[in-house]
């Protein structure tokens, strides 16, 4: 089946099979390996992407369901060589250890800031409630998002 959609501002047409998950299509067909699998059941958030402005777990969506949608992955945050402010802030605040949850964390945080440019700490926690991290205890991730808001 042909899947036509916009990924990171680019018009893409790829072949997918009916039961294929969006996660697998993005990784295998478009090489967007920032999208990670950590649980396969929408619980860990490592595969989070932004679809039509909202953070969603790409392991719980069929590839075909993305037809005509606009998708952002971490690869798409960088604009003309400039990192997104969240990316800068994650680096500056020590929010990254093993890095496996990082793309998902960035997507959830980015989706939050699209919707609400001035979230409270509690709202940040709620936005990343579906993103698990074993390394950091979240503190530095939350600080990074708060820091990005200030800047």
């Amino acid at each position: 089946m042909k899947l036509e959609f916009i990924v990171n501002d680019k018009h893409e047409i790829i072949d997918v099979y009916p039961g294929e998950r969006l996660l697998d299509a993005l990784r295998n067909k478009l090489g967007l390996t920032s999208v990670k699998e950590g649980c396969g059941e929408g619980e860990c958030g490592a595969c989070t992407i932004i679809m039509d402005g909202a953070a969603v777990t790409s392991c719980t969506i069929l590839a075909m369901q993305a037809k005509g949608k606009e998708i952002i992955t971490t690869e798409g945050l960088e604009k003309s060589g400039e990192l997104d402010i969240l990316q800068e802030s994650f680096m500056k605040n020590g929010a990254i250890q093993c890095g496996y949850c990082t793309p998902g964390m960035l997507m959830s945080s980015k989706a939050l800031l699209i919707k609400n440019p001035n979230p409270t700490k509690e709202e940040i926690k709620r936005a990343i409630e579906g993103n698990l991290c074993r390394c950091t205890g979240y503190t530095k991730i939350i600080n990074a998002v708060l820091d990005a808001i200030e800047r």
């Binding site: 929408g42 958030g45 909202a54 777990t57 719980t60 936005a127 409630e129």
Partner: peptide
């Protein structure tokens, strides 16, 4: 229900 990502979908 679930997480932010799940409620979005």
């Amino acid at each position: 229900v679930g997480s932010t990502q799940i409620r979005n979908r």
